[in-house]
Design a protein around this nucleic acid. Structure first.
Lengths: 155, 155
DNA sequence: TGACATTGATCAGTATGCTGAATATCAGTA
DNA sequence: TACTGATATTCAGCATACTGATCAATGTCA
């Protein structure tokens, strides 16, 4: 039997663990307080103003119940605004606030630095390969997770 | 700025998300009820009977506070036994039960099938490359996480 | 139009993961 | 031996993630 440390599933957990730690460290050093998940949500709303929660979840492959808490915390921080849609009273339309825009712009260099740090053991070619292989594996496994990616266009 | 879907951190989260979903699905289909984390702990205790919780956490890179809950749930399921150490009354010695051994043996085929499923989009060479690159990136980033891997030998 | 399925959001419950603090114990030393 | 620092575990609290259920609103189709 293979050892744990050779199993893709275990390596996935470890790499994610390191990625989150690096992200939080770089972001905190830059003077911000935002989690990777919150950053992804902020970025997606910034690019898609007026989006509803389910569509947002699909864009970044979040679970629909997870997104509620994430959005709520971003709202509490004053980075996102949430209001009932006029077209569909079930839905809440999300928009980024001016404060949210400012944070998003300010935090981005730290986020990009974190991406480099978490791959610091790899050459540039290896890093590219890893990203490509992950993308390929994820694309093939997308519909195996409860929260598959759903592009806005496909909806 | 890079899009989220090209960032290693985001890909790490997505791949881990799929890996967990695949693991749980394969394991459930085989008639078992065990999470990836619980499986890793069970495997480590099986290979290291009498281990204490902190050392166990180091072997599989768990946070020390996370391991407590994991071990407790495995104990409730009757798969692990926990008892005070005679040499050090602070520590709890962990051993696998006969039921735990049976589950561990029975579940392993499903766990290995899950590893294949989560890489189903990759060729055999690509899968090997991905594992290798993840291992390299993890080794370099190991001490960046709060719960770095600590081999028993190093302790 | 009215029954029905669908959809957006929320809630309860469970399982990771982390921070920081508390508690008990151990080990080394003055 | 008393003190000090280190260590093993636990606890409180917060933030993902998921399952399954509920609720309100919408859309569809006979």
């Amino acid at each position: 039997m293979k050892a744990i440390h050779e199993m893709p599933g275990h390596l996935a957990r470890r790499f994610q663990q390191i990625a989150v730690a690096v992200f939080l460290a770089e972001v905190e050093e830059a003077g911000y307080d935002l989690t990777p998940v919150q950053y992804a949500a902020l970025a997606a709303v910034s690019a898609n103003p007026g989006i509803d929660q389910v569509t947002l979840a699909g864009l970044i492959a979040f679970d629909r119940t997870t997104i509620a808490g994430v959005v709520e915390r971003l709202e509490q921080k004053g980075l996102l605004a949430r209001q009932e849609s006029l077209r569909d009273r079930r839905a809440r339309e999300l928009t980024i606030t001016s404060g949210g825009r400012k944070v998003f712009r300010g935090i981005t260099p730290a986020v990009e630095a974190a991406q480099e740090t978490m791959l610091r053991g790899l050459t540039e070619k290896e890093a590219k390969d890893l990203v490509h292989l992950l993308q390929k594996a994820i694309a093939a496994g997308n519909d195996l997770s409860r929260a598959p990616l759903r592009s806005a266009a496909a909806v």
